[in-house]
């Protein structure tokens, strides 16, 4: 009799423990995101409706794409601070090239992708061949690209963005089953996330990126072409910034500060998504949700009616808190 009463709770405990262990393995970012999103839903009915959620995802997709690109560079142990300026360049430059002529849309996009490729190559070259720390190199590139873009358009925004160009960011697939309207931006994010997933988690390149971020010297001695891998990482980051820029231009106006602070937002999104600053760890899926979390937090601050400076301060707090959380939890493991 006593044995059965003792046995049963222990069995239940075991099951509970197994479930608990399973829950603990889920990255913190999912709990944070869904937690905040539920609060958003309680505060505003918009976030309870399918169109509202789709609009939220449309807004967030560009940040998520930028964050995936940033993650690739962060995983090598570097930083890419130039992506915010690339976004500014894309919006200002496209507006000038298009000048309200829809037939120019492909030209504008190809030009921007080519410029992105060039910026990525230069970043990679400066970091891997001239051996300048990426933080400094891309900080310089940030100023250079922004200044260059402003010079190109003559100091102030010029021209107009055409509807067909803006569609990437603001358009919807209509009459989609279940959700009715499905944003192009989300589709682009899903495709890019899938591609990056294979590159990052399922290719030699991804494994070598993590290897470099973890231990450059050991990687080099194991035959990893460190400079080549770093170059590719910066190129991917720049190209993703161009794509993100096209989408951001889709619903923002043409102004010179459009890309400002995006590099910090994406780094925060990566950190929340569990990317180790200094390299060696990352996950595409978690980073996408890291970006969603950032956007959800900003929306929450808006709903609470807090002014913009709070947004910056909160962002700083998030970076510090997330890095501290990682540092503490790895210390515990040891």
């Amino acid at each position: 009799m006593t044995t059965t009463t003792l046995k049963q709770p222990s069995k239940i405990l075991k099951i509970l423990k197994a479930i608990w262990n399973g829950i603990r393995r889920i990255p913190a970012v999912y709990f944070i995101f869904f937690g905040i999103f539920i609060v958003l839903g309680l505060l505003s009915p918009t976030y309870q409706s399918t169109p509202g959620i789709m609009a939220f995802l449309r807004r967030t997709s560009p940040l998520a794409i930028l964050a995936i690109g940033e993650m690739i560079v962060l995983s090598t142990g570097g930083y890419d601070l130039s992506i915010g300026s690339i976004v500014t360049m894309v919006v200002l430059g496209s507006s000038l090239l298009l000048n309200n002529d829809p037939t120019m849309m492909p030209t504008a996009i190809w030009t921007m992708l080519a410029l992105g490729l060039l910026i990525g190559l230069v970043n990679g070259f400066v970091v891997s061949y001239l051996k300048i720390p990426s933080f400094i190199a891309t900080l310089g590139m940030m100023l250079l690209v922004k200044g260059g873009a402003l010079y190109w358009v003559g100091g102030a925004p010029r021209g107009y963005l055409t509807e067909n160009w803006r569609a990437f960011g603001r358009g919807y697939f209509e009459n989609v089953p279940l959700v009715d309207r499905f944003p192009y931006a989300l589709a682009i994010l899903l495709i890019l996330a899938l591609v990056t997933y294979f590159i990052y988690h399922r290719s030699n390149f991804g494994k070598q990126i993590l290897a470099i971020g973890d231990n450059v010297r050991a990687s080099q001695l194991s035959g990893v072409r460190v400079r080549l891998v770093r170059m590719i990482a910066f190129v991917i980051s720049s190209l993703f910034a161009v794509i993100g820029g096209i989408m951001i231009g889709g619903f923002g106006g043409v102004n010179v500060t459009i890309g400002e602070g995006l590099e910090m937002q994406t780094i925060a999104a990566c950190v929340v998504g569990g990317v180790l600053l200094g390299g060696g760890k990352g996950s595409v899926m978690n980073v996408v949700f890291g970006a969603f979390t950032m956007e959800a937090i900003f929306n929450l601050l808006n709903l609470l009616g807090l002014p913009k400076p709070y947004k910056d301060a909160v962002q700083g707090l998030i970076i510090i808190a997330a890095v501290a959380y990682v540092a503490l939890s790895t210390r515990k493991k040891k």
């Binding site: 294979f198 590159i199 399922r202 290719s203 030699n204 390149f205 991804g206 494994k207 070598q208 290897a211 990687s219 194991s222 035959g223 990893v224 072409r225 080549l228 891998v229 590719i232």
Partner: peptide, 15 residues
């Protein structure tokens, strides 16, 4: 264990 073999293969090759 697989770093050396991966390093000398095509960069974007699958793992």
């Amino acid at each position: 264990m697989l770093l050396t073999v991966r390093a000398i293969q095509f960069v974007f090759g699958p793992i």
